[in-house]
Amino acid sequence: MWTKKSVANVFKEIPEEKLEACNLTLLGKLHSRPNVNFQAFLTTMKKAWKTDNVVVDQPQQGLFTFTFRSESDKKRVLEGSPWSFSSNLLILVQLNPKIPIHRRVFTHCAFWVQVHGMPVARITKNSLQEVASKIGKVIEIKMEAKEGGLCKVGKARVLLDLAQPLTSGIMVNFEDDQYWVDFKYERLPHFCYSCGKMGHFTTNCEEIP
């Protein structure tokens, strides 16, 4: 039962140095199999990120803090995600100084998704935005063409809900026709071909044995 004696008021401002350290810190959580060798994990991630200027701590199993020495290093690592350790997805989010670490949710992760099968003239940023928005929140759109050619590859950085199965593609309606377009996900960790979700293989699927 709550009483006045069991409530503490902490209204003081957060020290500037604390805010600065929090701003340079990312929270990371392994999507599956949290029990890993910490030293091996640390060595692998520093090598993948090409930096030693990061202090890593493990508040609890499978949950990590990464404090960088510079904003540029932190931004580069965050924008370069998704990252994996032994095919196990590492979800990275910015540390919020006002939320306890154990209360932070790790339900979404951004992936680059290529869109294949669009008519050449239809590959525009607006059309890619519309198509990619059907699988998640679109963060960024890129158009890539080799040596300025007409045939471009369009892709979107999409925030995916990890609880949902991956979408292989969708049907797109145009004024005079419709086509099926395929999604190709870049740098996917291990996932299940039965239920379509990330975090386990088909042999360990509980939904579709």
Rank of each mutant, 00 (worst) to 15 (best):
W2K: 12
T3W: 15
N9K: 12
F11I: 07
P15F: 10
T25K: 01
G28K: 07
G28Y: 05
K29R: 15
K29N: 10
L30C: 07
S32W: 12
S32D: 11
A40N: 14
L42I: 10
T44N: 08
K46I: 04
W49N: 03
N53K: 13
V56P: 04
P59V: 09
P59N: 09
Q60I: 11
Q60R: 15
G62D: 13
G62Y: 14
L63H: 12
F64L: 11
F66K: 00
E71T: 08
S72I: 15
K74A: 11
V77P: 00
S86E: 07
S87A: 04
L90G: 02
L92Q: 02
L95A: 06
P97R: 02
P97Q: 07
K98A: 08
I99H: 08
I99C: 13
P100F: 04
I101M: 12
I101E: 03
H102V: 13
H102G: 08
H102S: 14
T107L: 10
H108K: 04
C109A: 11
V113L: 01
V113E: 00
V115C: 03
V115H: 00
V120C: 07
A121V: 11
I123H: 00
N126L: 14
N126H: 14
N126V: 14
E130P: 00
E130M: 14
S133W: 10
K134N: 15
G136T: 01
I139F: 03
I141M: 12
E144F: 12
A145K: 12
K146A: 15
K146Q: 14
G149F: 10
K155L: 02
V158L: 02
L160E: 01
L162H: 05
T167Y: 01
G169A: 07
E175T: 15
D176S: 04
Y179I: 08
D182K: 02
F183S: 05
P189K: 13
H190T: 13
F191D: 04
F191G: 10
K197M: 13
G199T: 09
T202K: 15
T203Y: 00
N204E: 15
E207R: 13
I208Y: 14
I208P: 05
I208C: 07
P209H: 12
